[in-house]
Design a protein around this nucleic acid. Sequence first.
DNA 1: AAGCCGTGGTA
DNA 2: TTACCAAGGCT
Length: 339
Amino acid sequence: MLAWYDVHARVLPWRSPPGTPPPEPYRVWLSEVMLQQTTVATVAPRFAAFLARWPTVEALAAADDADVMREWAGLGYYARARNMLAAARAVVAAGGFPREAAGLRALPGVGDYTAAAVAAIAFGERALVLDGNVERVVARLAAVDAPLPAARTRLRAALDPQTPADRPGDFAQAMMDLGATVCTPRAPRCDLCPLAQGCVAHALGRETDFPVKAAKRERPVRDGLAWWLEVDGAVLLVRRPAKGLLGGMPALPSDGWRGEPGEPPCPAPWREAARVTHGFTHFELRLRVLAATLPVRPALAGEWWPVARLADAGLPTLFARAADAVLAARRAPCLGLEP
DNA sequence: AAGCCGTGGTA
DNA sequence: TTACCAAGGCT
């Protein structure tokens, strides 16, 4: 694997070339958090922006919470951003990053995978780095037919003897690169794989039968309302509760999205201005946006944000799309919804 | 343990 | 179009 990695390693902004000293722990940790359930292509430019704005863990620890959430807007899984900031502050308070997986694992937002990845890549610890890519590679190598995630213990047992004491960080990244570029979920390129000789799934001609995954539940549809309240060119934004869906993010006022229309933030001549559908992990939302304009600002909690600068508000994608839909309908009313 | 938690790309 | 999936973690 290491010889393969020396030739085929992907060049990524948070990575140093094979066999060279690792990047600072801060960069490794930051990239690993951003990469949780998020593609390399999505992360690359956002990682650069974060690093430019907060070049060190000390700088990030000193950042304003709202600035961090705004910088994270659109990346999803917003608990990552809240945990990341808490972890940065814990690291600075402790005088630096823990140098072992066990200590890293105690940081908020750092689970088994991320702790092992940072320990291996940044500190050279022989930790077992098991992410979705490595799960797929190992499940095929050993033809593990037990369904994930329960089979993770078996995959870990199969990975352990393969993980070297020398260059464990490069080994981990090699396995992930192999999973991302060769041992892909669909149409794996076994002709390019350095492990094909010893791969049981390949020998069986059943590569794509592994890993086996537990059946997932179907995604229900929920209906919800949001309100676009505008006064003098500014729209009312509220801050969502710190925990839960889109936690800590700015938002349009909205109801509980449980199908029973909630109460608007204030009396106003509400009219339906847009509809958007948005897929979350565990449900699909059909959101109706009701809009009204008032002559004076009512006394409401929240922030009046200039519509012309709404792109800078750091809205999560759902509300950014809702806002776009409202403004698009305003520009082309004949194409919009009926009154 | 299993549900909760975003978003964008791909076939 | 739908379905799957991406360097998972928390409760």
